[in-house]
Design a protein around this nucleic acid. Structure first.
Length: 874
RNA sequence: GCGAGAGUGGCGGAACGGUAGACGCAGUCGACUCAAAAUCGACCGACCUUCGGUCAUGGGGGUUCGAAUCCCCCCUCUCGCACCA
């Protein structure tokens, strides 16, 4: 494996492209010229283009996912730049987060040191990729110079009524003393401590994303450069549903509770009611539990069960009859039992439902289990009202309402409207729109995050930190020797005077969810040094991001939060746009084969030797190796490839080229050693071609032979084809066209008719240098310099080449000749030749003649420049 | 369960309804070499009676002069959501 790569580039006779010398040299040249620098508010009138890739978390090393992400972005940035746009292409660090605190707890390294060291290491790795980034704009979200402005934004949101403090149910780890995200609860236990997680009500800060729910949903239609499925995922997440809110009166008051409010999307089925069910966390359930140990035990069971996906999948519907009953709002004297049910969610609607088993599958399962009655009220078109019954499958289709008093005879939709009007008339309910989206809880009991800038005063309540006291900085001297939030344990940090009354008060010790940090960084990049969150002129110029690129895993949370934040910033006067990302591209993952020794231990790709038949053995011991599935690179399976090692061995251009060439960028790709080696061979091949290039003749020759003419056609068509491919994110197709182009240049070198060929060949190399420059920027510069040893210009400063329309047009076209739709011959004709001429030429082809002999041709189809088809009788 | 996307050679993939398999990887043969690597050249879907044919884009129907592409049904895989009332 990999013998094709010389350890010493000078070890063979052929001229070698020495990427180890060339790549850093060109990177220095770009940096010295400030090639990728742009101003906050540019003058000069070039159209702007803002390219952004999702900024990395500084884990310590870049991985292949980063390489793919930043290569894709760099192709776009360099291409748009050549196309005459002023391109903003910044980079920074999503630098707060739990891993830094884990490093502190496990290894005693301060989170700040751990983070900044990682940033330094990763910056160096990224710089080796030769990305066209404006490094002057770099920042890290853990820098007070960033998070101080975030605190200001929060205070502005607070003033604007976009922030709330409210009680909410959270996953609480009693051992670690912290709130856990749903993803951090595994089988009901804390992922770190292993302790049973409790549901706890806690006072938390919330950003009122629900205030924008209608707009966040409807504006999805305007995001026409977003992938359809991302818009769909957001739409589902926001989850609009129309229905009714109605309240049921208890026949006997429970404590001071007299009514239960219910949300339903099927108010038309109200007469099919059989029971009322409460979520275990519902206040009425709690009131019952206070006097009924059976109810209390049932609620405790539900709480322990949790709501993880695996549990829901298998859990059967369980209920507890409270003994309470409610009156039916329309059926005089009818009452229904009130149950507590494990399948009712407190988070959705009102936490209470009315059960109509005939027309809801869950309600039906529940009713069958507990012997509750099932009354159908929607009759299918072909149904007989006297005999229609529901078995074990609820009927959820269209139909006519029956058994329903005033609704009888109405269709489902009409019945909904009618019953809502009636509810509103009697003041027991209203038609409402309900949203699945919840407000965004941003409080985290952690040290390594942005402090929430408020102060708790016993006298004044919650007092915002005055703007002139921002940033609220994290203290450096913290310890991680006990569980819980180090900010809370700090001896002095939280004790401050109330800004209002001066009395002793306490700082908020919670910090922001790190998703807050990434919800506005794209705006900060426009003016990263100013002493306000954003400079209006700068964001007005640069925003929105024209092309955003990142992983599909952020389809909902990060992108939705950013859309919300941008709206909130607009409302508070920081920005003019409300959609942050005009174009979104979601890339696929980078996968790799996995390998295991016969004892089951995972092996790194470096440790194994592949054989041509696809089997493998251990490189050192020769022991057999099991070649496993191609799957996402992960440390535990050791199927990772280190980008740094690849760049050492093959160079950045090779890595970039391979990652672009393998497949369409939105799909998952497989990283293969053979594929990288192939890309490396291509870089050397291109370099050899320029070595064989003659000096440019001063003027274009007046005559070209066939080879020169053909090459010029290919060159100019390649410009057109590569441009099209780059515009449509078909980078693998752009690569394929460039392979063809290089093959054509090599073919021309073997041609006999050499008139004008040296000139044409050199023109081809010039075009090649520019066309590969978005993908392989270093090699492009190297070729260009070889062609123009004295030139001061760099490819990076040159405009994108324009194809000559006369050369893009064909001299002859190949027409496919079909008989009865099957290909029988091809003929070469002049472009746009007359139908008669083409059909005559086609009919004179021997093979066609043979097939047409003695047959009656009923139709001759001619599609100009494409095809002739003879349709025979019978 | 609901929703979305995808099924094309050994592999990744290409193909405005118009020559299916571009281009790359892997492979075969040859040249160069003492040899190998690199490089260069040729071949490379299956099958047959091989200057010519037949069959082939998950399966089955349909529309069309012509379908990988459009329509209907089915199968498989991937992803997302999910006791959402």
């Amino acid at each position: 494996m990999n013998e094709s790569v010389p350890t010493d580039p000078t070890s063979t006779d052929a001229p070698r492209y020495d990427f180890r010398a060339a790549e850093p040299a060109w990177q220095r040249a770009w940096a010295e010229r400030g090639s990728f620098h742009v101003d906050d508010v540019p003058v000069g009138g070039k159209p702007k283009y803002y390219v952004l890739e999702m900024f990395p978390y500084p884990s310590g090393k870049i991985h292949m996912g980063h390489v793919r992400n930043y290569t894709l972005g760099d192709v776009v940035a360099r291409y748009k730049r050549a196309r005459g746009f002023e391109v903003l292409h910044p980079m920074g660090w999503d630098a707060f987060g739990l891993p830094a605190e884990n490093a502190a707890r496990e290894r005693g390294i301060h989170p700040a040191k751990w983070t900044w060291d990682n940033i330094a290491a990763m910056r160096a790795e990224l710089q080796r990729m030769g990305l066209s980034l404006d490094w002057d704009r770099e920042f890290a979200t853990c820098d007070p110079a960033y998070y101080g402005h975030q605190q200001k934004l929060f205070l502005d949101f607070l003033t604007a009524g976009l922030v709330e403090r409210k009680e909410s149910w959270v996953n609480w780890d009693p051992v670690d003393g912290t709130v856990l995200a749903n993803e951090q609860v595994i089988d009901g236990r804390g992922w770190r401590s292993g302790a049973l997680v409790e549901k706890k009500q806690l006072s938390q800060w919330f950003l009122r994303i629900t205030a924008y729910a209608p707009d966040l949903l409807s504006a999805l239609d305007t995001l026409d450069r977003w992938p359809e499925r991302v818009r769909l995922m957001q739409s589902n997440w926001i989850g609009r549903s129309e229905g009714a809110l109605l309240s049921f009166t208890l026949t006997q008051q429970e404590g001071d509770i007299a009514k239960a409010e219910v949300f339903t999307t099927r108010p038309d089925t109200l007469f099919g009611m059989s029971f009322l069910a409460l979520a275990p966390e519902h206040p009425l359930a709690a009131a019952v539990a206070a006097r009924d140990p059976g109810a209390a035990a049932f609620i405790a069971d539900c709480r322990r069960m949790g709501t993880s996906e695996a549990v829901i999948e298998t859990a059967e519907k369980l209920g507890y009859d409270t003994g309470l009953t409610v009156q039916h709002p329309f059926i005089e004297g009818a009452t229904f039992p009130v149950w507590i049910a494990n399948f009712v969610l407190m988070e959705y609607g009102t936490g209470a439902i009315f059960g109509c088993p005939a027309h809801d599958q869950r309600d039906l399962d529940f009713a069958r289990k507990y012997g509750l009655h099932v009354t159908p009220v929607v009759l299918p078109a072909a149904g007989d009202p006297a005999s229609f019954a529901v078995g074990n499958e609820a009927y959820v289709g269209a139909g006519t309402i029956f058994n329903s008093g005033l609704l009888d005879g109405l269709e489902v939709d009409a019945a909904k409207r009618s019953i809502i009007a009636e509810l509103e008339k009697r003041r027991i309910g209203t038609g409402v729109v309900n949203w699945r989206l919840r407000d965004w809880g941003v409080s985290r009991q952690r040290y390594w995050g942005c402090p929430i800038p408020v102060i708790h005063c016993d006298a004044c309540g919650i007092v915002p930190v005055p703007a002139d006291q921002l940033p609220v900085r994290l203290p450096d001297d913290v310890t991680f020797d006990k569980p819980g939030n180090p900010l809370d344990h700090h001896p002095t940090w939280k004790y401050v005077a109330c800004p209002k009354c001066g009395a002793a008060a306490r700082r908020e010790t919670d910090t922001f969810d790190t998703f807050v940090d990434s919800s506005w960084y794209f705006a900060r990049y426009c003016s990263p040094k100013v002493d306000v969150p954003v400079d209006r002129a700068a964001v007005d110029h640069w925003m929105p991001v024209d092309q955003y690129i990142g992983g599909i895993e952020h389809a909902i949370l990060h992108l939705l939060y950013s859309r919300f934040f941008t709206r909130a910033m607009k409302q508070t006067g920081h920005i003019a746009v409300e959609e942050p990302f005009a174009g979104l591209f979601t890339q696929g993952m980078v996968n790799h084969e996995s390998y295991r020794a016969t004892d089951g231990t995972w092996l790194y790709p470096d440790e194994i030797e592949k054989r041509p038949d696809g089997t493998a053995s251990h490189r050192e011991t020769g022991a057999p190796v099991v070649v496993g599935r191609v799957e996402a690179m992960s440390k535990s399976k050791r199927n990772t490839v280190d980008p740094g090692a690849i760049i050492d061995r093959y160079g950045a251009d090779t890595a970039r080229w391979f990652i672009l060439s393998d497949n369409p960028p939105e799909r998952d790709m497989e990283w293969t050693e053979a594929g990288v080696a192939g890309a490396y061979r291509f870089t050397q091949r291109v370099f050899r071609l320029v070595e064989g290039c003659d000096e440019m003749a001063a003027a274009m020759p007046s005559e070209f032979g066939a080879a020169g003419r053909d090459l010029r056609h290919v060159a100019h068509r390649t410009i057109a084809a590569v441009s099209d491919a780059l515009e449509s994110f078909s980078f693998n197709v752009a690569v394929a066209r460039l392979y063809e182009f290089v093959n054509a240049i090599a073919d021309a070198d073997r041609a006999n008719d050499r008139a004008g060929l040296p000139w044409a060949r050199r023109e081809a190399m010039e075009i090649l240098a520019r066309l590969i420059s978005p993908m392989m920027p270093h090699l492009a510069e190297q070729i260009y310099r070889r062609l123009h040893p004295a030139a001061a210009a760099l490819v990076v400063d040159l405009p994108w080449p324009q194809p000559d329309p006369a050369l893009v047009a064909a001299e002859t076209v190949t027409i496919a000749v079909q008989v009865m739709g099957k290909l029988r011959a091809t003929i070469a004709v002049q472009p746009n030749a007359a139908a008669d001429t083409v059909i005559a030429a086609a009919e004179s082809e021997p093979n066609v003649m043979r097939l047409l002999a003695g047959k009656h041709v009923v139709k001759r189809v001619h599609v100009p420049n494409r095809i002739v088809n003879f349709v025979l009788a019978g």
